[in-house]
Amino acid sequence: MTAFFQSLGMNHDWAWGVATIAGILLIALPVMLAVAMAIYFDRKIWAAMALRRGPNVVGPFGLLQSFADGLKVFLQETIIPSASNKGLFLIAPIITFTVALMAWAVIPFNSGAVLADINVGLLYILAISSLGVYGVVIAGWSSNSKYPFFSAMRASAQMISYEVSIGFILICVVLWAGTFNLNDIVLAQKGHGLGFLNGFAFNLLLFPMWVMFLISSMAETARAPFDLTEAESELVAGYQTEYSSMSFALYWLGEYANVLLMCALNATLFFGGWLPPVDWAPLYWIPGWIWLFAKIAFFFFVFSWVKATVPRYRYDQLMRLGWKVFLPVSLGFVVLVSGYLMLTRYSA
């Protein structure tokens, strides 16, 4: 894109700056739109699983429900509790929302169609997702209220626990792909399964890693069945209890942007990202971003499906799963994968 703006007569620095801003808008605005639609589809899927109709009043099939909700919260009054820490109370939702959008910078939408093609892409994702916890923790503390505080405690312990196993799972993928760059990881998956299926998930050694990554990504985004940070039966609404209007909506949007990001990561790391599912030439005529969107939509359906059907975990069960099951298993798989690669690929 820099070259395009240079052809309009800008020098390189200006063209780069304008291209970057255009790229940010090209990613952030569709993500926002996708979040609005994701909320709608989420509600429709739960409704279908509970034999209800779901949102069906605003617009055709209720498609505009999310926008109506957005307008509603936008017009509401922002209530700041008098005992809260005002500055931090207002910064917290901004952090959550910003961080949820930042990680999209390294997701490749097509061959080379990525905002920041950096060679530490996966580490960047890890770094950004580790920042996500601050929005929740600061909200819980600055609200100066019991339930948000409990929720913040839970959130920080939960996210740290699952980040460890996610780190090991990602190391397995990186070992196999031989790079941290997400675009190269996608390319490394071309024809990986049986010579014609695109995706690391078709590898017997990496398939268990994908299953664990899917579950960990639900825990990392605090989605059901791991939504203990906002367990309504115990904590009212968790860290969001004291929030209202737009500051609440930012959490809402940020949560869904994070869920979509995790779906995109599932697709990119294990199911070939923008590659078609089968390595067959005519399928490459369909643009890569359509394949990526289809995969994201599929994983989003899995997320809603799980949320609609699986009961919530108990907190000690959540910790047990993270530390006693996922951590040792993923650590074992790091040894297994690196051992296998040493014996095959690198045994020169």
Binding site: V120, L123, L126, A127, L131, M153, S156, M159, E163
Partner: peptide, 26 residues
């Protein structure tokens, strides 16, 4: 040194400081 930068964020911001905050908040 982008690798060091990312490690700094992952290890210190993402883990160490969260634990600090965890203790200090209580």
């Amino acid at each position: 040194a982008e690798f060091i930068a990312m490690l700094l964020v992952i290890v210190y911001v993402g883990a160490v400081a969260v634990l600090f905050l965890f203790v200090v908040m209580m």
